[in-house]
Amino acid sequence: MSDLLRLEGVSKRFGEFVAVHDVTLFIPAGRLTAIIGPNGAGKTTVINLATGALAPDAGAIRFKGDPVTHLSIHDRVRRGLSRSFQIMNIFPRLTVLQNVLLPVLCRRGRTGVALTPVEGEREAVAEVERILGEIGLLDQRDAPAGALSHGDQRLLELGIAIAPGPELCFLDEPSAGLTPVERATVLELIRKLFAERHTTFVIVEHDMDVVFSLSDWIVVMNRGRVLAEGPPAEIRENREVREVYLGEELTA
């Protein structure tokens, strides 16, 4: 088995509300998976459970074969599990370069260095510049991140998410709130990163064009459960999925 991540019978409830119920999900390496579903289907909760932001009430989570159910967030990041956020989450008062530098320093175990200037971390800075080149923000490296356009901030967040060099990276609605042009840029970037790096992406998306053009495998969630999964062509034809979720968009 080359499953990178395995969720086995995972459940999570908030008070009375069952956000995720008995979800079993295998994410193999090298396949671009998309998780779709209506609002409140439990997509973001699955990300939160997988990455350690939430602890499951039941079930087990394995990453690269090791149990990680009770590991802290930063320990999972260190093992190669990373994410971006649905609501923009960057370091607004730091420069673009510093934003990406943090995860790189962290992976190199240099964040505790206290008395030498950060500019002296030449290898880390060079690596960050490569990443900024990949995401197309190199010419804005010294701008405060909070001053970037919304689209550029999305690109930056993608840069922060891949900077730890993850094997598996969750992208929570990476194109939310973008103009069509910006959206195309972000998608092109995801495709490029997927091709060039050994990173397996799992994206949560609302935009069906994005989902069907980008992914190799689609997981459909509804009311906290996995409704169906399979390759895009199969999901497109799945009757149940069409009824619950895709109906209007595909028949239109």
Binding site: T51, H74, V77, I90, Q98, L101, L102, V118
Partner: peptide
Amino acid sequence: GMYRLVHSPLGLTLQAIRDSESRAEFAGVP
């Protein structure tokens, strides 16, 4: 000492935590 500290990687890490605790944690910072 403080000047060196705030301009060091440690200083950067603290400022990042100030800006976004969750983003820093997900960048791998305890």
